[in-house]
């Protein structure tokens, strides 16, 4: 805790300073609320809309979590297939890269034409945004398997599946987690974008409505909540990482 205060006070002061300047600027230059609301306006707005906001919040949270889980699964499966089948990797790796050069937002309207306004196109968008960092990081984790350990396993007569489960997968875990952290923040962003396309509820819907009626303070409330969800996701994954990769941290301490 002491360490946290020691390390954390600088960024905290920076954030507070930023908010103070923002607050003062809106008053000194008398900026209209619909253009840029002051932090105090946003806080008041947050209290006002909170009751209406919760259903939107849960809708987006649900979408992001499930989308993230699907994306993670797809990413890991793709990485595993590409790793275990070098021919397939050579053939399809360029496709993997190409899929990322296509901005998700551009693809979104097409998905709506094909799959309508239901949950499916939304999950596709989130999956497309999430799977790539996971697949790439897992693949590089698989490829960086320690040669000594690999030789040991081979000499001892390990089968291909033993090599994968006992060596390559645990070895790739730290890499996988760096991919997961990136994917976690992507998933929240993709969930909100997918809701812009048309949905019953969700933070994206809330934002669209607020924007069209120039309730800028409400938009800021939504942005703030999105940030909180993103950070929470990130934190949960970091905790999971600490729990699953204990062997690395203990070494650093000792």
């Amino acid at each position: 805790m002491k360490k946290l205060i020691q390390k954390g006070w600088r960024p905290l002061v920076a954030i507070l300073l930023f908010l103070v300047i923002w607050q003062l600027a809106t008053q000194v230059f008398s900026i209209e609320t619909w253009l840029l609301p002051a932090p105090s306006d946003i806080v008041i707005e947050a209290q006002n809309v909170m009751d209406r906001f919760w259903p939107h919040f849960f809708a987006t949270l649900q979408l992001a979590v499930f989308g993230f889980l699907i994306g993670t699964t797809v990413g890991l499966v793709i990485a595993t297939i590409l790793h275990l089948m070098p021919r397939v990797r050579e053939t399809f790796y360029p496709f993997l890269i190409l899929s990322q050069n296509m901005p998700v937002i551009v693809l979104a309207p097409l998905l709506v034409i094909w799959f309508g306004f239901g949950a499916l196109p939304k999950f596709i968008i989130i999956t497309l945004a999430c799977f790539f960092p996971i697949a790439v990081s897992a693949l590089s984790g698989f490829q960086q398997t320690n040669r000594e350990l690999f030789h040991y396993m081979k000499m001892m007569g390990a089968t291909k599946s033993q090599l994968f489960w006992k060596l390559e997968l645990p070895n790739a875990l730290p890499s996988v987690f760096s991919g997961l952290k990136i994917a976690a923040t992507y998933s929240v962003m993709a969930a909100v974008i997918s809701e812009w396309l048309g949905a019953q509820e969700g933070i994206g819907v809330f934002m669209t409505i607020a924007t069209s009626s120039y309730k800028t303070a409400s938009v800021f409330v939504a942005i703030f909540i999105v940030m909180v969800i993103s950070l929470t996701f990130f934190g949960v994954i970091q905790l999971l990482e600490k729990f699953l990769i204990r062997w690395q941290q203990k070494g650093e301490e000792g």
Partner: peptide
């Protein structure tokens, strides 16, 4: 054929996560 001998490599080849 692999699997017929027991092997101890140069560097510690202990698995760090075990």
């Amino acid at each position: 054929q692999t699997g017929h001998i027991s092997y101890m490599p140069q560097q510690s080849s202990l698995f760090p996560w075990r």
